[in-house]
């Protein structure tokens, strides 16, 4: 087997696993039962989405995915913080 073929299949499998992880986390978002479970699930969706984009960057050999992954990581951090703050007080800005 040649190197590109191994990369294509192996990284494709890794991506499929990460997408499955996203689906499981999304199920936790939908299922709940409490709001904190949903926020935790959303944070996991963000995390695995970011990892999926990084593996996608490996598969295509495209350095630009790095920026996308960094933006998703930033957005996930800010979103989860805002939601957790909201759960604590009921208001995001006080």
């Amino acid at each position: 087997m040649s190197a590109p073929l191994i990369l294509a299949y192996g990284l494709g499998l890794a991506q499929a696993m990460l997408v499955l992880a996203m689906a499981l986390a999304a199920w936790r978002v939908l299922r709940g039962p409490r709001a904190q479970d949903r926020v935790l699930g959303l944070d996991t969706v963000y995390l695995n989405g970011m990892l999926t984009i990084m593996v996608h960057g490996l598969r295509t050999g495209d350095g630009l995915s790095f920026e996308a992954a960094l933006v998703i990581a930033l957005l996930g951090f800010a979103a989860t913080l805002a939601l957790a703050k909201f759960l604590m007080q009921g208001e995001v800005i006080q």
């Binding site: 192996g10 696993m17 992880a21 499981l24 490996l58």
Partner: peptide, 17 residues
């Protein structure tokens, strides 16, 4: 590269499970 990526994806998947 493939081994590292599969290991990382595996741990993430176990976390989601």
């Amino acid at each position: 590269v493939v081994a590292l990526a599969l290991g990382g994806a595996g741990f993430s998947l176990i976390g989601a499970i």
